[in-house]
Structure formats: structure tokens, C-alpha cells
Design a protein around this nucleic acid. Structure first.
Lengths: 338, 338
DNA sequence: ATGAAAGCGCTAACAA
DNA sequence: TTGTTAGCGCTTTCAT
């Protein structure tokens, strides 16, 4: 591979390397004509600055790191859209690392970003416990998206509110046996479960929580046995509220597998409002996390943070909203009378 | 942010920086005891090597770049799974860049990888024309996934075969009016369209091709007017074969919106075998691209390539396979008699 | 407006 | 087995 260096460009353009550097970062003090000549020469030679070298030489670095938990969950694609938009606006580059559903890749991914010496990291879907994340304090400027991590910046969403909106919607429709598929207990993600429990209690209803992995298949496997005709009638939920859309889709899969109808036989509410919930065939009622907005705002904060690493951590909280679609309706008559 | 350097660790461990460097890359010639002491000290201090510095100092770099077209399309998540597995096996780090559906971000993303001076790039879903990619020859070691790019390594899939499998399956079921939703004409992605045209011709059927963007919504919008009762009967397809799963899902959306049934009223075949096609409610017949396998193999080749940038470009071609599910059946009787 | 020179944190000979 | 030294390709004073 032929690699063009700044010195090559300088020689070709008949100037000093320093001037090329200045021209590329359009600093003041380079005459317009020389600048154009330098840039033109560089373009002709296919020169791209060596980022490793510039990062090393300059104290400040303009690239931001991104961590996303799982590419198979579209909510992270939504977040990324927002991040990219904000990065573009701020003129920052983004380097992406990816975790995995179990959370076992959180650490390797973050360490990789530490090694890359990015000026700040925007992280969506971190699963590492607060205590372990604390080890990164002072070593990595981190902005957490959709989860509050003590000691770090965060752009959060009011999950308690989101769950409350969902449950109250179902209660208002007349549901009483509302099952909640909750995340495995992980630091920072308890809000949806908590909001569910609180709203159920407020409505004087008995809570029913099952813990469920993030994957569609996991929800399917978990719910299948609950819906069979074999299951005792009173145990059948009339509505299921899940902690994310993936699992809601898994629930729909199970419902369809039993040849039951949504919402006539059972109502389903998801969380995240990913695009897969929108199509006519799905039409899922869900809580909109506003993932792109969270990602955008978190990135803006990361920019600020990278310019001033010392200021106090800031936490901004967004409000989710309920998107009512066709997957929710009053429960079947038998259940209403009860 | 406190940043620990190699010199810090060396001082603390009472050795020279060079020895720390050796210890970290567990080279021969460092006594076991010193190595453990060094590593232990480093761990205690939270030291992570500065990758910018090591990349600069060493000619060879062990990180691979990844380009993925679009995070909203799960086929790229599948590819990435394979890439990551291979990278892990080879002990390489991965840095990810993301493009966008229109292809307008291909260049910025690739340039970013050039600036990062990664040793090789594995690219899935490149949309840049062959001629423009040619500019990167000699400047970027590129392994293209699922597309052949002249002058570069590639792990391709036999798209002509894939389309043939799909069409022959439909023809065998008795379909005659088979619509194909093809990609916009882009270098390297003509195979599916070509395979469709050839198989239709072989079956003495009239081809019917509409060009359709990659997105689910685009397919929905395109197909909606074709399925309405208002549409002249003879113009209604009995089967639709799409260039990817996203668009197939869009077709299903449109079919459902018209309250038509799959496969009784119309058959649908997708392409990619992403996980969203598998659930009971979807159960889409599709061509399996084996995306993870492609990604894995491409990454293995990238490793080889980065160790020997001079060898001839190699192209490996995988065979797709047809996954028959519930979205295909013989056409409605009326059409059979015709 | 431009150039010279030092140094960022590492690696890679070469010495010891 | 360990230390010394000279860069890697940039940025950044400081001169000119």
C-alpha cells in the first residue's frame, strides 16, 4: 500500500510540513493561494492525514467513540442515527464498537476505546454494573444513553413514566391480568419494571412479572407455554407489556403460533418504538423512547465533555410517549366479567 | 482525564519502557517474573496502551476496519457477527464505520478508515461505483463482502444462483406472473436481477421488474397500488420476489394492508434470510445469503491481505440456498387456469 | 505568511 | 534478559 505523508505533500507543493498541517486545519495565517495549492496537491496525491499521528501530536482529539450493545436490535440503529447527525454538526468523527446481548463484551469494547484515546464515548445499552463502570471514572469520558450511571454524564429516559403510560393505557381499557416481561435485573434498567409495579399497585392489581432476555426468540419461548389451551384459564394474561420491542415481537410470534388474535384475544405493548413495530401487519402499541433524540443529545454532551473534562457530570432526562396502535383493545368479554 | 503512559508503568515497575512494551506484546526474552510484575503493575494503574502511538511506531497495525452500509438492515448485523468471530480468532481489533442507504456516506466512511491507517478493511454493502472504488486501489486493502469489485479481494455470493433458486421454486409451484423488486442499478449488485431475468426466460415467462430502494417502506409504497382491487386483474402478480428481506417485509405489509393472504392469494420470496423472516407470523420463504459466513471468511482474507498486501486479489464465491417457509404456495386457481 | 525544531507515546534495532 | 536510542507522522511553539 502506498501511503502519502504530509512531508510528501509538502515537498510536492514546495512548502514546509508545518504549513500543510495548518492548511489542513484551515488555521489563520495561511495565505489563500498557498492553501488552495496545498489542498489541491494533497487531493491529487490522495493524501489523507494519519490520524494516529495527529492524535499523538495534538493533546486534543476530535474523534468520539460510540458503544452500541447489539446491532440486532434496531433501537441502537436509531440511537446511532441521532449520534451521527450530532457528530456531523459538530464536525467530529465517530468510531464504533459493539457489545453483545449478554454484556460480556462491554469491557473489551470500552477498553478498546480507551486504547484509541477518543476524547469521549457515547454509550448506548451498557450492561456493565455501576460498580465496574466506576473503574473507568477519570479514565474515560463517558456519556451514557438511556441509562443513568453514577458519576457519569447521561441522557436518560424516564422509564418509570414510560411503563406507567403503558400500564395505565391497558388498565383504562379494562385489563386486569397484565403480564410484564422485564429485563434481567441490571443496574440502571429497573425503571420499566418499577413503573409497572407501581402502576399495578395504584390500580390495585396483582403484579405478574417474568424476567426475559432481550431477544425475540427468548420472549417467544417464555410466552408460548403461557398461552396454550393447556394453561389454566386464570393464568392467561389478557395483556402483556414488554420491556422492549424485540420481546414484544416475540410475544406476537407466540400469539400467532397459538392462532390467537391481537388485540381481540390479547393485547400487547412494546417499548422503544423501533421501525419494525410500525408496519400494518404488526401495528404494535409501544412506548416511544425517542432513541434518535437521546443519541443526538448525548453526542452533543460528549462534545462539551471532551472540551471540558472536569465539570460535574450532567444528567438530562427525556420523557417517553405512548404510541397507541392496533395491538391494544379491551380484553375479551369473559375476562371483563370475570 | 488521567492517562497512564508506558513510561509511568515502567517507572512504577522499575524497568525500562521498552521492556513494558515487550511484556505487553508477550515477546520472547522477557523473564516470566518481570513480565508478571509489569502486567500486574499496569493492571493496577489501569494502563491501556495508546493505540495511536503503537500504530505510529510499528509499521504493521493489527486493527481491521469494517464498513457496513446500514444498521437498520439486519443482514449487516449478521455479517458483523461473522466478522467479529474471525477477528477474535485472529486476535485483531475491529473499528466500525457505517454508511447509509443512498450510498452517499461510502466515501466519508472509507476515507475515515484510510486516515485511521487500518491494515485492511472488510466492507459489507458498498454502493460506490467500481470506478470510484478504483481510486482506493493501492491506498486501502479492501475485502468486499457480497459484491465483487474489480481489483479487490471479495467474498461474493452467487446471486444469479440465488435468484434462480427463488424463481424456479415459484415456477414449479405454478406461478407465471412473477414480479421482481430489484435494487437500483448499482455496480456489483446486478446478479439477482440477472438471475431472475434468465430464469424467467428459461421458463418462457414474461419478466416484470420494478426497481425498489432497500427500505421496507419503499417496497410498501411501491407495491400498494399494484395489489388494490382497482388494479386491472391481469396486472396483479401471483408472486413477488424481492432483492432483500427488508423489501419482502414491505411487500408483506402491503399484502396485509389489502387484507390479502399469504400464500393463498399471493406468494412472496425474500433474500438474505435475516432473523426477522423466521418468526411464525412472518415465516417468509427466502434465499439464505449466509451473511455471517461471508463476513467471517472476508475477515480471514483481510487478515491474510494485511500480512501480504502485494498478492493478487482473490475472489471466493459462496453458494446461497433457498429456505422454503410458509410464504410460498401454488397461485390461486383463477390464475392457474388463466 | 512561512519554516525550524522539539516532542507526543510508542516500537524496533542494537548494545550491554 | 534488560536498557538505550532513534524514529513513526504529525502538531505546536517560536523564529524569521
Amino acid at each position: 500500500m502506498v501511503t502519502v505523508t504530509m512531508a510528501d505533500v509538502a515537498r510536492e507543493a514546495g512548502v514546509s510540513p508545518a504549513l500543510v498541517s495548518l492548511a489542513f486545519r484551515d488555521a489563520y495565517g495561511v495565505s489563500a493561494t498557498t492553501r488552495t495549492r496545498i489542498l489541491e496537491t494533497a487531493r491529487r496525491m490522495g493524501y489523507q492525514p494519519n490520524r494516529a499521528a495527529s492524535r499523538l501530536a495534538s493533546k486534543s482529539d476530535d474523534t468520539l467513540g460510540v458503544f452500541l450493545l447489539d446491532l440486532h436490535n434496531e433501537v441502537f440503529a436509531d440511537m446511532f442515527d441521532g449520534m451521527r447527525e450530532a457528530a456531523r454538526t459538530a464536525g467530529r468523527e465517530l468510531v464504533l464498537t459493539v457489545g453483545s446481548i449478554g454484556g460480556s463484551l462491554d469491557r473489551p469494547a470500552l477498553d478498546s476505546l480507551v486504547r484509541a484515546r477518543v476524547s469521549a464515548v457515547v454509550a448506548g445499552g451498557l450492561l456493565l454494573p455501576d460498580a465496574e463502570l466506576a473503574e473507568y471514572r477519570g479514565r474515560l469520558a463517558l456519556v451514557s444513553v438511556a441509562r443513568v450511571v453514577p458519576g457519569f454524564d447521561a441522557v436518560a429516559s424516564d422509564n418509570v413514566l414510560g411503563a406507567t403510560l403503558a400500564v395505565e393505557h391497558l388498565v383504562r381499557l379494562g385489563h386486569r391480568r397484565i403480564l410484564h416481561l422485564a429485563t434481567p435485573p441490571t443496574d440502571g434498567y429497573g425503571g420499566r419494571r418499577e413503573g409497572y409495579l407501581r402502576s399495578m399497585s395504584d390500580a390495585r392489581l396483582e403484579p405478574w412479572v417474568l424476567t426475559c432476555d432481550y431477544a425475540r426468540q427468548a420472549a417467544f419461548d417464555l410466552v408460548m407455554p403461557l398461552l396454550g389451551p393447556a394453561a389454566p384459564d386464570r393464568e392467561q394474561p389478557t395483556a402483556i407489556f414488554t420491556h422492549n420491542d424485540q420481546t414484544a415481537l416475540g410475544v406476537l410470534d407466540a400469539v400467532h403460533a397459538h392462532r390467537l388474535r391481537v388485540p381481540e384475544d390479547i393485547s400487547v405493548v412494546g417499548y422503544d418504538n423501533t421501525s419494525a413495530t410500525k408496519p400494518p401487519g404488526v401495528d404494535l402499541t409501544t412506548v416511544d423512547l425517542h432513541a434518535a433524540d437521546l443519541g443526538r443529545r448525548a453526542t452533543e454532551i460528549a462534545v462539551v465533555r471532551s472540551e471540558d473534562p472536569t465539570r460535574e457530570p450532567m444528567v438530562e432526562t427525556f420523557e417517553p410517549s405512548l404510541v397507541v396502535r392496533a395491538s391494544t383493545a379491551p380484553p375479551p368479554k369473559g375476562h371483563l366479567i370475570r
